[in-house]
Design a protein around this nucleic acid. Structure first.
Lengths: 210, 210
DNA sequence: GTCTATAAGTGGATAGAC
DNA sequence: GTCTATCCACTTATAGAC
């Protein structure tokens, strides 16, 4: 577990960035499995082959780890989401693409663990850190706001844009609590079933006028 | 805060049941505001005017309090839900009534705090207690399964019944994280907006054939 | 039933050697 | 950058008096 002296360095500071990243990914997994409060720094350190004291060379305190976990996953999803919204296609196609991206990130990507942290562990943050986490979430939700507003303007959906956004995101994110990818429903079918649940009117329109 | 010696007794054991209930309700609120792990027994005891040691006359341990919080809220919702499903009306009306009941319980009832605990604090339970909590949730979700299956059979919805159920419940429950009843949207309108978001196809059918 | 006092343990975090 | 050793705040839970 700690035989090789160093994993491939990522940035200009060799070793340190690699270790930090390893810690963030491991923390994300542990926080998801056990929760932030019940994951001790000793546990996290042990999981990457360190002693607990060594953790605080990479992070000022435990909270900084949680914040890093949150930021790590969502940033990449935001970038991919922006690309989707600026891509071609009509509002319906963009909304569906954003949906599939979100689901894909939850199921396969590093985004799943990060999203889990954002959803379930925000209360463990101090007020200032909570603000920072809120900014991250807001930046991502802004993408959804755009996509939903467009679809509303095109008459593809109806209702309040905020309620629609919160409802759909809530329904999707809840998936991380119940879905097992090795169960009755394979991942790709799940995504389409969720899409049907979220936007039935939108899909039936697409089928009528292809 | 502790002037009157006793509040109105509820059951055959006067005083004790009242105190226990007071503790459950206060715990539910505190767990929602701060989370279970970050709510200390001293805090909870203090909030009802007790010393921390006195708590353990009413509950064996802290976990038992959390379990009681969860059970307390959901039981009444299950009973009301059963009444809805056995009432008159077609599948569409029953599904909508169940939806409104759930939202109502989240917004006004004691169910909101309990649901919050079930959603966010289950990982703090030991395996056996977790099983008990799962049974409670399952009993409630069974009501939804019935209502959704009926609506599917009647051709009112389409998709996988499990995915539909999980998605809709996820979307609704997420509300406790963002909705403020004193904000832009009054509670009764929120319920209707959420209904539009959850079952647009069902509502538009009702409007076409009233 | 509630109090006081305290046991027994765990947590995050620090200091300084290597 | 990691280790060892340790501090100390704070937690749940208990014991026994009232």
């Amino acid at each position: 577990m700690s035989q090789q002296p160093s994993v491939q360095p990522v940035a200009h500071r060799p070793g340190e960035e690699g270790r930090r990243n390893e810690l963030i990914l491991t923390a994300a997994r542990l926080f998801r499995e056990q929760g932030y409060e019940r994951t001790t720094v000793r546990e996290l350190a042990g999981a990457v082959g360190l002693q607990s004291g060594s953790l605080f060379h990479h992070f000022r305190n435990k909270e900084e780890i949680l914040l890093a976990v949150m930021a790590n996953g969502i940033q990449s999803v935001i970038e991919e989401g922006l690309a989707v919204l600026e891509g071609d296609g009509d509002p319906a196609q963009r909304l569906i693409a954003l949906f599939r991206l979100h689901m894909h990130s939850l199921i396969y990507g590093v985004g799943g663990n990060a999203m889990h942290a954002i959803i379930f562990e925000w209360r463990s943050l101090s007020p200032s850190a909570r603000l920072r986490a809120r900014e991250l979430a807001d930046a991502y939700e802004a993408l959804w706001h755009r996509a939903i507003t467009e679809a509303l303007a095109a008459g593809l959906l109806e209702g309040d844009p905020v309620v629609l956004r919160k409802f759909v995101l809530g329904g999707m994110n809840h998936m991380v609590r119940w879905y097992k990818s090795d169960g009755r429903i394979p991942p790709e079918r799940l995504i389409e079933e969720m899409l049907t649940a979220a936007f039935p009117q939108l899909l039936s329109r697409l089928r009528e006028t292809p």
